[in-house]
Write a protein that binds this DNA or RNA. Sequence first.
DNA 1: AGACGCTTGTCTACGGTGTAGACGTTACGC
DNA 2: GCGTAACGTCTACACCGTAGACAAGCGTCT
Lengths: 240, 240
Amino acid sequence: MEPVPPPNNQSTVPAPDKTRLSRELVLSTALALVDSEGLEALTMRRLGQELNRDPMSLYRYAANRAALLDGVTELVLNELAIFPQDPDWQSQLRQIAHDLRLLALRHPNVVPLLVTRPLSTPLGLRPLGTLRPLEQILSLLIDAGFEPADALHVYRAYYGFLYGHILNELQEYIVDPEENEALLRLGLHRLPPKEFPRLRALGPVLADYDGAAELDQGISILLSGLAAPLARAGTSTKPL
Amino acid sequence: MEPVPPPNNQSTVPAPDKTRLSRELVLSTALALVDSEGLEALTMRRLGQELNRDPMSLYRYAANRAALLDGVTELVLNELAIFPQDPDWQSQLRQIAHDLRLLALRHPNVVPLLVTRPLSTPLGLRPLGTLRPLEQILSLLIDAGFEPADALHVYRAYYGFLYGHILNELQEYIVDPEENEALLRLGLHRLPPKEFPRLRALGPVLADYDGAAELDQGISILLSGLAAPLARAGTSTKPL
DNA sequence: AGACGCTTGTCTACGGTGTAGACGTTACGC
DNA sequence: GCGTAACGTCTACACCGTAGACAAGCGTCT
């Protein structure tokens, strides 16, 4: 019966603003929450509490939790800026790859969403922000001289590799680099030597991993391979 | 107080076997459930009901739900047989790639687990079945003449691309090929023409997607690029 | 001014979830 | 046979997403 608001028992959130909510505010708070505490911390109730609102108010800005996740995905992907000013499509793609990699490292907890959400939504029905990179890269490739269909193939190979690399890198990336080595060794030590001799021997090498370099090399290999059909661009019908 | 067991009110499950449970039985039933009804259908209660047991009995075979998911992942990965008999490492890797692709198509609902679970577990602490392909491929590459460290790099590029491709393919793969075209067009039609001209124009091309071919080409590009350091193997001590 | 309707936020309630802990019950080695 | 450990069940709790009814604020039109 006491209408007095309890004296703010959570100390983390400094701003109990009662300003109007907005989709942007909801989504960016959700992203902040995911970034700091992981995906499973993003519940409707928790997000409501973070915004100092009833959980149900969120449903005005996202139809349900899945839509909210899509929103976060879109928000993150919007951080990826693609400027097609550079005439060299190869260096362009290389640049985008590094940008996306850094984006993923900035929001590691969102990466599962990035790779997983599209699996449950047909391409055409995905949030527009999600499709924009695709459109832009297609455009970039077509402008560079690729037939549209070939551009699609190139895109697939390129983006596939890129996502794969990001997943790879994030797997070996442990939050605390201090205990990384220790944990890694501990883990490796657990492996039966008879069954995993190679892996165990690679312990030190696994420890230091230059993701940017590795990505760059992979991209180089891929690009040189993909550029081939452009070189002999007489027939647009067959390859790729 | 009445000790009489209620006369079996659920009619769905045909096999009310009351045989002893086992980890294998639990996991394979879980996998079957995921395959047929998707990841979100795999709840402890539902799985218990599928096995005609109290949900709590499952905790004797998996510490918690996360461990259960790991178990399913491992089970699926065990379907991947790697026989290092073929002396040609390139064709070997190509073979594995196709095998893994088919595995993913056989268990599309498990793919999110495949790419996501490792993100939450440090490499050394993952289920052994999960690490076995890694070990085997490393072994394969080292036997082929790669320095261990180089083998790791090759593995990363290769597996990265492979996982990326699988994700890509599954994204464009819609369950019902009948309504695929329709849904796709519907979806594409929704896109603002001004903003997505390229994507919209590619509708027909998007519709037919030969995943195997696309994968094969990508692998070819990658392998030819990766084989280069082997060719100029001056610094290498290993005899081929 | 008043009345209207739309948007926003709140409240209550329901069925579902994972799982801790105590408790029978069964199987098996001795 | 007995004792012990593994197995299965039960109850209970805190938490989850969200349907549906409702209150409060707002701008617009008359």
